[in-house]
Amino acid sequence: MSTWAAAVGLLLGLTWTVAEVTVYDGHSLGSQCLQGQPCTLAFISDNPVSLPCPHSLNQAFVSWQYLNPTWANAQPVTLMLSRNPFRPLLSRGELRRLQLKSQLIAGNLHIPSPSVEDSGVYTCRVGDATVAYYDIDFQDAESIHVSHADLGEDTLGNSTVGLENGTWVELFTAWNAWQPCNHCYNPGERKRVGFCYALVTRKDQQVEPPLPCGMVRRKYPSLPPRGPELRVETCQAPCDGAPQTKMVSLLVYTTYHPQLKSFAFLRCPTSSIYSPVYWRKGPRALTHLEFLQKNGSQSLDKATGGSILRLSFQNHSHSTVYQCYVNGHLVGKFLVAAPSTLSPPGELTHSYSIIEALVVGLSMFLVFLMFLSIIQSCRRKPATSTV
């Protein structure tokens, strides 16, 4: 490890006091900034994020603004207004998509599925005062490096690259703390999330504090690609007297009717890469280790840290119940019916075609009646009176 990496460890310890990340209902929550200072945060795309707005409770007017620094001559635009839930849509396509998927809840900004393109500066205003300022780098979940300690797999090492004008950049991973073991009593798994950070030096002098790689890449486009990381290992934790059986208030129960030669994706409610989650197939627990060893057609999604279970139906099978747990609590039950109980794909396609034809025909008939009504209104002559 280079001498810079040792210094970075101390600096990151100070940085996380400002940019600390906590977990609530599967959302990664950026903590409040120090008064009058911005927060620099890294998150992973495709996982829900909630940004707090201090002093927003019981306030009459809260607004969130967004600025993408990569756009030329860009100005902050208003994403959300507490007084106007039916806000006009923004004209730019990227902004409109961000606006449509964002939610304002108790003054806080929730983004259920952020993308890399949503990186930028988010500010919250209460009245005329700016009370929160977040500079955020959403790192690509599709390029995440997953390693399992029990398979002897390594995390990404530090790397140093030379750029123009004697500039050097050291790329490394800034790790969050280990999450709790995903269940107790029996062996389980725990994970930790790491974000790509970069330290820029010139002539052995630090240019600026370590920043998320996406922010550094704005200034140095030739920076080599490097994604976030997910580290998994086997763990075992006590249950404090008894296995955890308490259920949270939200429990989703869904039935799936798959077809042969198809796939299904089961999403565990309230979970994300930032929360301890595990799955059960009947009485048997499913683990990252098991799927990585088999490398088969069924797997746990890497981008969300196992929040999505991918199933393949290539052969006839019996109906199966899958359950998922977050923080040790049951939050989802999925009954996956046997594929053989379904109608053949041809019959389903024929039924859908008939329904589609009926809907289209009814729509055309209603349009015809509306058009006919307009013609009749135009043909009416205004009544005349003689004096």
Rank of each mutant, 00 (worst) to 15 (best):
L309E: 05
A264H: 12
Q293R: 15
W279A: 03
S271M: 03
H316Y: 11
R310M: 05
L260E: 04
S317K: 14
T270C: 04
A237G: 02
T245Y: 10
P276Y: 06
M247P: 04
R267M: 07
S262H: 09
T304S: 15
A242M: 13
P276L: 04
T254C: 03
L300D: 01
S271Y: 04
A237N: 10
Y274T: 03
Y253N: 15
H316F: 09
T304D: 03
S299K: 09
A285R: 12
T255P: 02
F291P: 00
G305Q: 06
T245F: 11
Y278C: 02
Q298M: 13
H316V: 09
R310C: 04
Y256G: 00
L309I: 08
L309A: 10
P243I: 04
L286K: 09
S317P: 01
Q293N: 13
I273R: 12
C239Y: 07
G306F: 02
S249Y: 05
K261E: 02
G306T: 00
H316I: 08
T304C: 05
T255W: 01
G282A: 08
F265S: 14
S317A: 15
S249P: 00
Q293H: 11
S297N: 10
C268M: 01
H257D: 11
F313P: 01
I273E: 02
F291D: 00
S312Y: 06
S272F: 06
S249H: 12
S297A: 14
S319M: 08
S262K: 11
F263D: 08
A242T: 14
V277C: 08
S317V: 06
Q293M: 14
F265I: 01
T304V: 03
P243K: 11
L292V: 07
A242P: 03
T287E: 00
F265L: 13
T320W: 06
V277R: 01
K246T: 11
L260K: 13
A285S: 14
L311T: 02
L289M: 12
L289V: 07
L300R: 06
T320Q: 15
R267A: 12
W279M: 05
A303V: 01
A237V: 11
F291H: 11
C268H: 02
C268S: 02
A242Y: 14
V277E: 00
P243S: 09
L311Q: 05
R310L: 01
S272H: 05
L251P: 08
K246W: 07
M247G: 04
D240S: 12
T320K: 07
G241C: 12
T304P: 02
S262N: 06
L289A: 14
P258G: 09
S249E: 13
Y322T: 05
T245R: 15
S312T: 04
